[in-house]
Each structure stands twice: as structure tokens, then as C-alpha cells.
Design a protein around this nucleic acid. Structure first.
Lengths: 160, 160, 160, 160
DNA sequence: TTTT
DNA sequence: TTTT
């Protein structure tokens, strides 16, 4: 019921291990720093690189998963929305921050630390997708229809 | 928990009124035909147009809303995923279909029939956004933090 | 030749008229402030709104078009990428900014001031699409093939 | 100058090696079959998978790169648009096809055959991004401004 | 701070 | 079949 679309799609690598905190209510909040690099040729024909560091935040179940499976160097697909915040720093100065609030995440098969060190973590599956609505109704798949698709559904033929 | 990303984003106009059916279980399934047109200059410098007609399907609550508010000519933003189906036609021949299964929809302020004729329909708000997960947990908004954002949450400070 | 994907998709309304500047080389740089609003129900069941104001920048030909056709209130689709900058303000304090560098723009049929006041502007078509690569090769359309699509092209049958 | 948005974003794996053809004019046309899999729980709580096979087409320089670097099993990010074609098969029957016309491609660090067999191919960098507008003007990066960003550009300070 |  |  929003007015407007606010969508961000990123594929990048983590610059550091994720940081996870918990609200008093026990909800996980995980932050990562995600790099995307673009390249251009400048007027002299030299390759010029520029890296953007995105602050991505995962809440709830997605925050738990991100905190558990992502690591420094991991390659990840993130979908979310932009959120701009204004706050007063400890120095009393107004500051601004930009975050991408993730609502979908999928690990890509990039390298990234193989899990060594952080021995308390579970093994990492090479690729998974997690939505902000994890735990919600799954969607989108239909059994292959034998007649015209999406038609004459029986009661159980829930198409997603 | 998917493997891969399958995402479609469309902004276009309906070529006809939506068609809504119901499963035996009472779930709405609404189909629309959505046009997007692209323009190019051919080698003679003439403007060449090409229109794609997308078959978009809305299920459940989203199907009810699409059936109620969209009309021939309506301008709409749709987000969804591609689904390819193979089925046997009434002539016994195998056929293929491609549908975009919508999971988000937002009416844009385009023209479109003003609702005249179909008197049984509700008045149409000029713009609304509806997700496939309508009825699910809302998301993404946080109260403007006074200190550092996303930190030291009290139990009620659920950030989305 | 980038490493990573950095993509933003917005549909929103301008909070003010665009501001256009020109580089010494004559390139247009147009900035807009674009609102997207999301709605959620808080724990008391009240509708809570939150509006994000996105700073969107258009360069070059896209900057000229944005400056000419967009107005306060205009509804617009924007596609671009995130860019974070750090700079020293006139007060000597380090500041941060986040911009969306647009590479595609399309006006939507929303309201928006009808052009009154800024009499020097051209009439505004209700919908147009402009890419950052305006002036570059058009793309994507193919003549409807009579045999299998994308096959046995003659030299002129350039499919885009 | 299109009317509407027609955008597809895919991350998936190739089911086979790419197939490249050339027009009489020498333009490369490469086709791949790309799998994306989604998972849902059915009413009995069982995991149900469904895989979509997308037909993706790359033209021109992008077609050459896709043909050279992609292989069966490769993981790839693709951005493009939907194109529906109708043609008459060799059996005289009208057929329909759906293709995604790619305009951006980026190899992801997934597995994929290590290049064995096709000895004539160049070494494959694990990740690269190629746009349909390859060879066109690069974009988006600006030198870090020392004062306010995007302001007072000298003639050479082309911001992208 | 990542990645190639 | 839409839209401009």
C-alpha cells in the first residue's frame, strides 16, 4: 500500500564479517558492508575504478541467516530498499546515514573465507535464497497444468 | 530458499479489462494483458515501434485487488517472476505459455477508463501498492532514530 | 566490466522543480528530489507512513530532458546506481552524501504542475523514456520472424 | 523513448554450453538456456521445487563475450527485456517463443565446467560485467569531490 | 574493508 | 488489445 517504488538490487562482496546485534525483543539485526565496483575509461584511455561501499541491514530471520552464513569476501545478491536516516552523533552534530534494508538475500558461489576460524558456525551451503518474508507463504510455483494453465483449478490446486 | 533470481519489472498499460476467475477454494486469479512499447531508429532513421504484450497473473488477495481496480488502459507497475508452462491444447497439440506471476502491483496515475460502465466497482484510488504478501508483516520503515540508527533498540522499537 | 551490480529502481514524485547546472564543458547536470512512501501498520494497528527522499542526478542529455520535462509533483520512473560521496563542507566538517545516478528515466502519467509558471518550457508529453545512452544504438526489437526466431539473419535483419 | 518498462533480472546457471551464430553482417547472436529454481512447501509440508528454463539471447559484442566465456554450469547475472515472437514452424504450425534479450551480463563466481574440452577458448576470468552498450561511453563514476559533490565542475571534470 |  |  505504498506510494512509489523504492528498490535496490546489489551483487557484491563483503568487506568484513557481518555484525549481528539483537533487539531487547530478541530480533536479530545484521549489518554488512558490501562492495560493488565499476570501471570506466577516462579521457586518456586509462581504466578507472570506483568502488561503492553499501551498508546493508538484515532484520529478523534474514538477519540471523546473514549473520550465520555470510563472511568477509562472500559474494551475495541482495534486494531491498533505501532508507535515509538523520541522527545526532555523540558529538552533538547531526549526521546522515543511508542504508539498504534487505528483504531478499542469496549467497552466490564466490569465494570468501571458507568458514575457518569461526568454528561455531554451521557449514555453508553454496547457494541459498532467503526472503524477508521467510516463514510466510511460499509462492509462484504451479504444478505443470495438463490443460490450459491457470484454469479450472480444483480446490487443492493452489497455484503457488 | 530458491536457487537463482527470477525477477520481472514492468510498467505498462492494460489492453483490456482484467479477467478474474476463482478456484474452487475461492482464491481469485486475475489475468491482464500488459503492453510495453519500445522505440528504435532503423537504419533509414525512421522511428520503429515494437510492442510486447505481457500476460500477467495475480493470485489471491492481489488478484482481487487487480480485478477490482485495474481497467483497460490503466497504467500499472508490476513486479513478479517468469513462469513457463507446457500444456496440451484442446486440439491435442502441445502448447507453451509464458506468464509473469505478479507479487507486487502498483497503480500509476495514467488514464484508463474512469470506471464508467462497470458500475459495480468501487471508486479507484489514484495510486496504490499491493504486495503478494498483503496481509503479511509490513516492512522497512523505522522510526527516525535520535541516536545512531539501528542500535540499542528497545523491545518495541521494532524497526519494520 | 564492473565487478558487482549496483542498481536502483524508483517510482516516485518530485518534491520540487528540478535544478539544472552546467559544467564548464556545457554538460547538463540536473538534480531532483524524489519521494517514495511506504506504509505499515504499527503494533496498535495504526497506519504508519514513512517517506524517503531520494537525491537523483541526471547527466548529459538525460539531464537536459529531466530539467525540461520534469516538474514539482511529476511522477517518474528512474533507474540508476548508488553513489556515495564524502566531501568537506564549507564549515570544514566532513560530510557524506548519497546520490542515485540515473541512467534511465520515464515520465509517468501522474499529476504534477501543469507547466504553469515556467513559461519558457516546452510542452510536456505525458510519457517518455530516455536512457543514459540516448543517442546510442537503439536495441531489442526484431522484425517478427517468419521462421524460427533469431536465425538465418540476412545482413540487414539486424535484430536490434 | 519507449512507453513502459520491460525489464528482466536473472541469476541462474546455464544448462548447456552457449550456441553462437553469426548474421551475414557478422554480428554474433548467442543463446543460452538459464535455470532458476524456486522452492516452496506444499500443503503437506514437503519441499517442492520448480525450475524455469529461460531462453536468453545476446547480440553483438555481448554475444561474442557470452559465447566465449560462458559454459554449461556457469553462474551468471543477466539483465534484459522480454520479447515474444510468433512464427511458423517447419510443420506449418504457428508457434510462440519467449526470449530475454540481454543487455547486461556478469559472470558470477559459480562453478561451471573449467573450460576443459573447448581448448580454443580464452582463459575465463571469474567475474566480469559486460553491457549491451559495450564500447559506448562509460558512466557513473565521479572523482571524489572536495567540496559539495556534483558542483562547479571544470571542463574536464566529467563526472562519468 | 571486498572482489577480479 | 494499451499507451503517447
Amino acid at each position: 500500500m505504498a506510494r512509489g517504488i523504492n528498490k535496490v538490487i546489489l551483487v557484491g562482496n563483503l568487506g568484513n564479517d557481518p555484525e549481528t546485534r539483537y533487539t531487547q525483543g530478541g530480533m536479530a539485526i545484521t549489518r554488512i558492508s558490501l562492495a560493488t565496483t565499476s570501471v570506466r575509461k577516462d579521457k586518456d584511455g586509462n581504466q578507472q575504478e570506483r568502488t561503492e561501499w553499501h551498508r546493508v541491514v538484515f532484520f529478523g530471520k534474514l538477519g540471523e541467516i546473514a549473520g550465520e552464513y555470510l563472511r568477509k569476501g562472500s559474494s551475495v545478491y541482495v534486494e531491498g530498499s533505501l532508507r535515509y536516516d538523520k541522527y545526532t552523533g555523540q558529538d552533538g552534530v547531526e549526521k546522515y546515514s543511508t542504508d539498504i534494508i534487505a528483504d531478499e538475500m542469496q549467497m552466490l558461489g564466490g569465494r570468501g573465507e571458507g568458514g575457518g576460524g569461526g568454528g561455531e558456525r554451521a557449514a555453508r551451503p553454496p547457494r541459498q535464497d532467503y526472503g524477508a518474508s521467510s516463514g510466510n507463504a511460499p509462492r509462484r510455483q504451479a504444478p505443470a497444468p495438463q490443460q490450459a494453465p491457470v484454469d479450472d483449478f480444483a480446490d487443492d490446486d493452489i497455484p503457488f
